[in-house]
Design a binder for these strands. Structure first.
Length: 210
DNA sequence: AAACGGATTGGCT
DNA sequence: GCCAATCCGTTTC
């Protein structure tokens, strides 16, 4: 299923997030390991579901048409920082801002497979890590990792939140691409296949199962 | 100043 | 499957 090679885990360098091809990045982030450290508690999960948001050109993006507000300002930062916002008044959704300064591209993290600190995640989510629901879906994944609004605009190269490459690679046939979830309002952009996920992985959200 | 509605989730029917 | 929860950024009056 998941292929592991025994390379030393490497924190992704700042330059990784400067890539201007956010569609490539959304797919390439699958298998990377997302870490948080909060009050000394370290949790991490393998990224198994993402969505690409193509900046000013994307009707589903908060920055569509170049819109700049207090909230979206974060998206215009240089790649390598986090964009966290509150959705439906309840859920914190975590994105990785990418590309160069002024290009508001971002990758929404929609699902992680618990890897490190599972007991801490179980406490946060009040359910067993063996249940897919513990970290499937963007709100659940963020909560399992302890991500809230205070993580907005944080540097992904710091010691509070970062991404590592553990050498986890998926074959092309293990990866599915489908329309993004919950963006019906985006009209002709609603059906773009910019959601990427690992097939058969239980930590992938249910909507649109492909 | 007030109203609207969302990149969702989980509990109840 | 349906629907309420619950907040605040954004739009509109």
């Amino acid at each position: 299923m998941t292929k592991l090679s025994f390379t030393t885990p490497i924190k992704l360098p700042f330059s990784y997030f400067l890539n201007q091809d956010v569609i490539f990045l959304a797919k390439d982030l699958l298998g990377k390991v997302l870490f948080t450290q909060i009050d000394g508690k370290i949790t991490a999960g393998i990224i198994v579901e993402t969505e690409a948001y193509f900046g000013v050109h994307d009707k589903a993006s908060h920055a569509y048409g170049g819109r700049r507000t207090d909230r979206t300002e974060t998206l215009y930062s240089q790649g390598g920082i986090s964009y966290v916002y509150l959705c439906y008044g309840i859920h914190h959704l975590f994105n990785i801002v990418s590309s160069v300064e002024g290009e508001p591209h971002a990758v929404l993290i929609r699902g992680i497979e618990p890897l490190i600190g599972k007991d801490i995640m179980e406490e946060r989510r009040k359910m067993s890590a063996s249940k897919g629901a513990i970290s499937a879906g963007p709100g659940s994944a963020a909560k399992a990792l302890g991500i809230d609004r205070s993580f907005n605009k944080k540097d992904l190269g710091g010691d509070e939140i970062w991404v590592e490459d553990h050498g986890i690679r998926y074959d092309e046939e293990q990866i599915a691409a489908s329309p993004r979830v919950g963006v019906a309002y985006a009209q002709d952009h609603a059906l773009l296949p910019w959601r990427f996920f690992i097939k058969e992985n239980k930590y992938v959200s249910k909507p649109n199962k492909i």
